[in-house]
């Protein structure tokens, strides 16, 4: 059966220890200054006195069901694996155009400075193949992150999704339908940015693609017309033709 991996995150137990971030960084050799995952937080309001708090929110690529990054990739180098639900990057097909990096409203992607292709969380595909949990999930001290297959009704994530009230951190105005679920009460919720497609991509979809279709279409129509004329009006050939045909 097809799997659909997801994460259910209890952000109320995240203590911002950075364990997941270092674990991920080491696992994937993420260069300095770049991250495949993050911990967001609220700002404390000290007027609350003894109840002043900070809520930490660990996250990473949300492996969306409505993936704007995939839509921004003309070649399918970024694609959603239908077997696992994981959004992958086929580095061999990628030309490093950067469309997907800006198309992600969560900032989940960065352009690798040496490989010059985008990089992002892939739920540690290699570790899954080895039978290990994703690096961030495995290492998390307070086990804020639960990982599993939501198509499997017996999985821990399915149980949590059934028994607990969960919400998603979603970009506006495009609901990318993320597969990162947070226990209700998660904060902050307003950080995702807009979905942006670069000018080159907009030019391709909005102008070049229709233009090419029209040009090829017209040309095709012309050829078809000539061909039809040649078939149905073989009598009315040009003088050249009649003379040439021996």
């Amino acid at each position: 059966m097809k799997k659909k991996y997801c994460m259910v995150i209890d952000s109320s137990v995240c203590i911002d220890c950075k364990g997941c971030m270092v674990s991920c960084k080491v696992q994937h050799k993420v260069p300095r200054g770049r991250w495949r995952n993050w911990i967001k937080h609220t700002e404390p309001d000290f007027t609350m006195g003894k109840h002043t708090f900070v809520h930490f929110q660990p996250g990473n690529c949300m492996q969306c069901d409505n993936p704007t990054c995939v839509y921004a990739c003309p070649s399918g180098a970024t694609y959603k694996d239908e077997e696992t639900g994981i959004v992958h990057i086929n580095e061999g097909l990628c030309i490093g155009c950067g469309n997907c990096v800006v198309a992600c409203p969560y900032g989940a992607r960065y352009r690798h400075p040496e490989k010059r292709v985008p990089d992002k969380c892939d739920f540690c595909r290699d570790r899954l193949d080895m039978g290990l949990l994703p690096a961030c999930v495995d290492t998390c001290p307070t086990k804020a992150r639960t990982f599993g297959d939501m198509n499997d009704p017996d999985s821990e994530v399915s149980r949590l999704l059934r028994d607990r009230e969960t919400v998603r951190v979603v970009s506006k105005p495009v609901d990318t339908e993320p597969n990162l679920f947070y226990m209700a009460g998660v904060m902050p919720l307003d950080w995702p940015g807009p979905v942006e497609y670069p000018a080159a991509y907009r030019a391709m979809t909005g102008f070049v693609n229709p233009l090419v279709k029209i040009a090829v279409g017209l040309s095709g129509l012309g050829v078809a017309a000539m061909f039809l004329k040649q078939i149905f009006t073989s009598d009315e050939t040009s003088e050249d033709d009649s003379r040439e045909e021996v």
Partner: peptide
């Protein structure tokens, strides 16, 4: 190329 823009426009 350190900038993604040339590749993006090139493809278009």
């Amino acid at each position: 190329l350190d900038s993604p823009t040339p590749a993006a426009w090139s493809r278009t």
